[in-house]
């Protein structure tokens, strides 16, 4: 039997808020704080960050119980790093090819990379999808709506 936190979700949430709140509070120290009556730019974020950190600490502490006997009630599902990574990369490929390579190439890039994330990936389907989406996007966004987008490679 493994020793595990029973409220893993809430404990992690608490830690997350504690860290984020502390970071914001620490960061706001580099700005002028001022007083409650004449607040500087650092006042508001300092107070908010500190509050967030306190709530985070409280959440983490309250849920830091371990239990040997009962079933874990609140575990964090294993994150799927593969889809996270692929979707992120797909968007970045799109973002940084749009200006130089144009909408058509960027769209194909996005559809292919994001398509790999699907378990039912199939080259033929992705080919058709990327072609039709590239055509649709060029017609609707660039031609019909007149957005200032580069369609073909510069």
């Amino acid at each position: 039997m493994k020793l595990r936190l029973i409220r893993q979700q809430d404990f992690t949430t608490g830690l997350f808020f504690l860290v984020t709140g502390s970071l914001f509070a620490w960061g706001s120290l580099s700005y002028k704080i001022g007083t409650a009556m004449r607040m500087g730019p650092g006042y508001f974020p300092l107070v908010l960050g500190a509050l967030l950190a306190v709530i985070g600490l409280f959440l983490a502490a309250r849920n830091a119980r371990v239990d040997l006997t009962r079933e874990e009630s609140q575990l964090i599902e294993k994150p799927c790093l593969r889809s996270l990574l692929l979707i992120g990369v797909a968007m970045l490929v799109f973002a940084f090819s749009l200006q130089s390579l144009g909408l058509i190439v960027a769209t194909v890039g996005l559809v292919v990379v994001s398509g790999i994330a699907s378990q039912a990936f199939c080259w033929k389907e992705i080919g058709v999808l990327s072609t039709s989406l590239a055509a649709f996007a060029s017609i609707v966004f660039s031609w019909a709506l007149g957005l200032p987008l580069q369609v073909f490679p510069a």
Partner: peptide, 10 residues
């Protein structure tokens, strides 16, 4: 979903 991502991106 690739279509949704594309529209988000644009």
């Amino acid at each position: 979903y690739p279509a949704i991502l594309l529209f988000c991106g644009i």
